[in-house]
Design a binder for these strands. Structure first.
Lengths: 146, 146
DNA sequence: TGATAGAGTTGGAATTCAGGACTTAGAGGG
DNA sequence: CCCTCTAAGTCCTGAATTCCAACTCTATCA
């Protein structure tokens, strides 16, 4: 059965499987090698292969040969992959606040000098977005029936 | 095998399974009933039951009886669940831009009157966060060995 | 009396995942 | 020359999940 036509569902079809976002997190950290990604995420190697191929096919990652003999590859983010950093940071911050106990395990520094805390704002007025200030004016259709 | 100590991984342990975020999306839309959530997401009913129980146990959703005879329940967001709206919106926007073809299926209106586009900014300086302006100053450890 | 609605359960088939062993192509050390 | 190591996967098997459709249980509606 198909659900609602929705960009959240579409996005999750690309990055929503287990390990995908964790692999991308590693690439964001600058880790480019298969073995390191496997070790740092904890994913099993065959699943990781499948995920990386999927992300590559979706245009989020690029697989590049950096050595010919023996052939060796590395993974780098595409533009779409780099744009995922806001997703990762927003998820991380939610995890820091509502799931992780104790200190945040990872801290990023912003170029302004501060330890990064992100805020999600309305691009038009700059106000912080809160659930109460939103109204859906159009929602994706749910395919009818059976 | 365990991977890196990380709030992204922790967050995904709570909301990263298939259907969880889609169920939460429906609740954000104001859909509170099991049957409607099942229909609008496309999840099978048994899995949805498991997910909703998990989200409840994690404190993201609350299951409330709204009628005693016959017993009927609805799902509402907790504070932690409401805080996920920024995650959902950020994911949706990425999906709109890099996955969905054509017009965004869903549009929210912000209280300022504009159709909502979100921007992820540094809470300290207010500048938009971009990959190039970030440096990791602490990263979660990866458990050693085997 | 029969149909309908809400909120699940249940059972079996299909799929995915974990974990480890194996492969390939060369480089480096003794 | 022989042995070992590294990077990047593949392959295999058994266990765990997910999918799907049908069934249950209560109670109200027509």
């Amino acid at each position: 059965m198909r659900g609602r036509d929705c960009s959240i569902a579409n996005a999750l079809a690309v990055v929503g499987e287990r390990w995908s976002l964790l692999a991308l997190r590693e690439v964001m950290f600058g880790v480019r090698r298969f073995d390191q990604i496997a070790h740092n995420t904890g994913a099993s190697r065959d699943i990781l292969t499948t995920r990386l191929r999927g992300l590559e096919a979706a245009g989020v990652l690029e697989r590049r040969q950096y050595e010919a003999h023996p052939p060796r590859y590395e993974y780098v983010l595409t533009e779409a992959g780099r744009a995922l950093n806001t997703v990762l940071l927003t998820v991380m911050q939610w995890g820091d606040r509502y799931v992780t106990e104790g200190e945040p395990p990872t801290v990023w520094q912003h170029s302004c000098g501060a330890d990064l805390q992100v805020k999600t704002v309305c691009a038009a007025c700059g106000d912080e977005v809160r659930a109460s200030s939103l109204t859906p004016i159009r929602v994706g259709a749910v395919p009818a029936g059976r």
